[in-house]
Amino acid sequence: MHIRAYLRASTKGQDAHRARDDLLAFAEERGLKIAATYIENESGASLKRPELFRLLHDCHPGDVLLIEQVDRLSRLNAEDWELLKTEIQRRRVKVVALDLPTSWMMATADKDAIHSRMMDAINGMMLDMLAAIARKDYEDRRRRQAQGIVKAKADGRYKGRPEDEKRNEGIIKMLEAGMSWNSIVAGTGCSRSTLARLAKRVSGEITS
């Protein structure tokens, strides 16, 4: 059995390494060693998480996926959570979360078959519940954020997201060099609406 730690933060402005010490302490208290750590800055509401799936690909049956909180693993909608959960179960990976005490025994010595099945069932139920709570929290925050923007616009206080000047300068240089829109979108991840706005800036239709 190998312990594989997964650390995730939603944006590059957040520190995905923050929980590393807590995961190390959890393993050391149980005489365990973390074999590998996988770190990424991706939204928990998306299945597009390369490091998580690299972790699962590296796992052998019985390995442990160690996380700080269930929401580090999932803020997914119900359909995507079922897809991820099915992949975890197919690879026979045990999920252990510091905020889910029922999962802690999964990281320790092998249990008899009946005890193991019972703990798997209890842990699976708790995982489903916490994943649903994490999704609801995500949706509530998004709703409050949208309501705040509507109010700020009504009050004349909304300024929108600040421009990523460094990235946009690079995109402008690509446009001036004659690169195709598809290539620029693929290379930078910018939206086509942003690209259209910058293309107008290059052509002189807008100045800012």
Rank of each mutant, 00 (worst) to 15 (best):
A25Y: 02
Q69H: 15
A16Q: 12
G13W: 07
T11P: 03
G44K: 10
F53G: 05
F26K: 06
E87D: 04
P61F: 06
A78I: 13
L66K: 03
L73G: 06
F26S: 02
C59D: 03
G44P: 08
G44D: 00
E40C: 11
E42I: 13
S74P: 12
C59Y: 08
R18K: 15
A35C: 00
E51S: 05
E42H: 13
T86W: 01
H17W: 09
R30A: 01
P61V: 12
E51W: 02
A9F: 10
P50R: 13
V64D: 01
L32Y: 08
D58S: 05
C59P: 08
D15G: 05
C59E: 05
N77T: 05
S46I: 02
K33V: 11
P50F: 02
A36G: 02
D21F: 12
A45Y: 02
T86F: 07
A45E: 07
S43I: 10
Q89W: 08
R18N: 09
E29H: 10
H17D: 06
A19G: 01
H60W: 10
A35H: 06
A9C: 13
S46Y: 08
L23M: 10
E51Q: 14
L52M: 12
P61E: 10
T11Q: 06
L76I: 15
G44W: 01
D63P: 06
E42Y: 08
Y38V: 02
D71Y: 09
H17E: 09
D80V: 12
G31A: 08
R20S: 05
L73I: 14
L83F: 13
Q89L: 10
S43M: 06
R54M: 06
A27R: 14
R20D: 03
S46R: 15
T37N: 00
A35Y: 01
A9I: 11
N77L: 06
V64T: 15
L32H: 06
D80T: 12
E42L: 07
A78W: 10
Q89A: 12
A16H: 04
R18M: 06
P50D: 00
D80L: 09
L56W: 01
P50Y: 04
L47H: 11
E79G: 02
G62A: 10
G13M: 04
H57V: 07
E29S: 07
E42S: 13
R54A: 02
L23W: 07
Q69S: 14
A9V: 14
W81D: 02
D80W: 09
A45S: 14
K85L: 11
E40K: 12
L52G: 04
D71M: 07
L32M: 08
Q69I: 07
F53N: 00
Q89M: 07
L65I: 13
I88K: 11
K85P: 00
A25G: 08
L47F: 07
L55N: 02
E51Y: 06
L52Q: 03
A35R: 09
E79Y: 12
N41M: 05
R72K: 11
A45F: 04
